[in-house]
Write a protein that binds this DNA or RNA. Structure first.
Lengths: 339, 339
DNA sequence: CTGAAAGCGCTAACAG
DNA sequence: CTGTTAGCGCTTTCAG
């Protein structure tokens, strides 16, 4: 009968070996004779023994816990990422301690401290701005960190994003090739590197075609703000195409244009988003969007982090992954446009 | 200058007190003279000391970690719940170790064992079926558990759901009052208690009006399955109203009916979902839905779990929370229908 | 209130 | 390979 809190000592006694023998049997890198292993395993299952991960962590210094900081889960892109991260880390024998930076009165720093108290082996920060102060603390504590979908100038920091500049440029090329000339942009939160890069790339792409932004509004990565931005943008001299900094906002813009302003996509205006969240593919939206390859971004993130974990002096890496433009019905497709 | 891994012993030395004094200053329930507290605090901040939560957990037996098991995050209802859970627990000084049961080759039991190794103080299982075997293990390990949005017959288990039977019945009353007579139902995964209860309530509601189900198909809580279910249901003798077991599926059904079958909502057919996820309110869907009050469900869940944590012999509780029917444009609204 | 001392459950040298 | 012996960093008696 399985007892609560069985210790290695009890297993040792039952198996007739030393406590360290038990430890060895359950420690990945250690060796024991087949005979000992058998005896210990038998006793262990008999008692329902499982090693105490915390005690192990205290002595070994490795908790096999990764802290994941998320800004908010409303944007479909993030639940998807969280799920993938969690699965990828689980496969590698790590577990995820989550922290939502959302509501928490701005003091994300406090909670990262708290999370640090758990002796986590690494941190993944998705779309949150790390104060350089905090980054310094993590470095001091020897906890590797990688930024996901948010860049930072600090060259000591590992970063994984999509290639936002190339992506922005590609959208511009696409819209220009589609014959659009009055092209608007709805920006995300201006503090975000992703926002800045997408806009920069987009502007470059327009400039290459001798164009510039016809209109620009800020949506702050929020649906309600995006709707209002769209309303302002179409008040007078409306654009014939709009690029929205992410899909989450683009969905709201699509609704606003169609149901509030009575416009048809793509006949009256072309609309393009960024991320390719699941909802972009839903028939009600059918949104053309530049895909962020979540799978590859997650894989890289995990790779970089785990590598840094077992080699503390590994150099920081900055990875930008290009994603394809997914063509759907919300934007006019140029004749002969190749993929 | 903040050093990596500062111990209480170092702080003690600097403060000129014993190591236990330092411990007392940082232990919630303990006492020390104001003078000692001051000295210790000063030394601690000077060194950048923070107690090691793991070591504390080993000796105290309380980790202040809650394991949260989630089936999948694609259905918008769950990210929302996860975020709220995480926030609520954080406020109470707990942290969340997540486990995604999704892909993981069916063996959710294995990973719950893993998560149990971390000496978590409690488990919240959202929409996952606990094998009674596993439930027994948790009980043996003395780890309280509460089931969220999924019921189980075992009376020793605490459970929080919405009142699915009342909800199903209410939808039936609503559709009947709207003059519908050929009413179809698209079921979720048949293994889920929520599915069964919603259907049971719905059928009761119809029966009370002398009606029965005109058609029934299974969508398994998946969008693609739901679409196919809708297609089958409308192949011949189509219903004039459909209740779909959750919004996640209802969104797919809405798209199928409108864009594949060319039907108008609510003129040709009324559609009602369950959950009231954010997307239900998006203009593109405007879906009438029975809301699951996530806030209250989460609050209850946390309450029950934490109570059980500090009183091990607290009786299990089963809570069913009623939610309102949110009227939108996808279903005909009966004349004089009161809220 | 405070320090000394005894563990929590486990891993990691260390001799044999 | 194995048992013995030190700890990991902390909380918690136990005297004083």
């Amino acid at each position: 009968m399985a007892q609560a809190k069985v210790t290695s000592a009890q297993v040792a006694k039952l198996a007739g070996v030393s406590q360290s023998a038990v430890s060895r049997v359950f420690t990945p890198g250690a060796s024991a004779s087949p005979k000992t292993i058998a005896k210990v395993r038998k006793a262990a299952t008999e008692l329902g023994y499982r090693p105490n991960a915390l005690a192990r962590a205290v002595v070994s210094g490795k908790s096999r816990i990764i802290g994941v900081v998320m800004a908010y889960l409303e944007n479909q892109f993030y639940p998807d990422v969280l799920e993938k991260l969690s699965n990828a880390l689980q496969e590698r024998g790590y577990h995820v301690l989550v922290f939502m930076a959302s509501q928490s009165a701005g003091n994300i720093d406090d909670v990262v401290e708290e999370i640090l108290d758990y002796q986590i082996d690494g941190i993944i920060a998705a779309s949150v701005a790390m104060s350089s102060d905090l980054a310094a603390r993590c470095r001091a504590a020897g906890v590797p960190m990688v930024l996901f979908n948010r860049s930072q100038d600090d060259p000591r920091m590992s970063v994984v994003t999509s290639d936002n500049i190339a992506g922005g440029r590609r959208v511009a090329e696409f819209l220009v090739a589609g014959g659009h000339r009055k092209i608007g942009y709805i920006a995300g939160w201006e503090g975000a590197s992703t926002q800045r890069d997408r806009e920069a790339g987009f502007r470059q792409g327009l400039a290459d075609a001798g164009l510039s932004l016809h209109a620009r509004e800020v949506g702050d990565f929020r649906m309600d703000q995006a709707r209002e931005a769209a309303l302002r943008m179409f008040e007078k001299d409306p654009p014939d195409a709009v690029f929205v900094a992410n899909d989450h906002m683009a969905l709201a813009v699509a609704d606003c244009l169609r149901f509030e302003l009575g416009l048809k996509l793509p006949e009256d205006v072309s609309l393009v988003g960024y991320d390719d969240v699941p909802a972009a593919a839903w028939p009600a939206y059918n949104l053309t969007s530049l895909r962020q390859p979540a799978n590859r971004m997650v894989a890289e993130t995990v790779e970089i982090l785990l590598h840094k974990i077992d080699d503390a002096k590994a150099a920081p890496r900055r990875v930008e992954i290009e994603g394809p433009l997914i063509l759907r019905g919300s934007a006019r497709i140029p004749e002969g446009w190749k993929t």
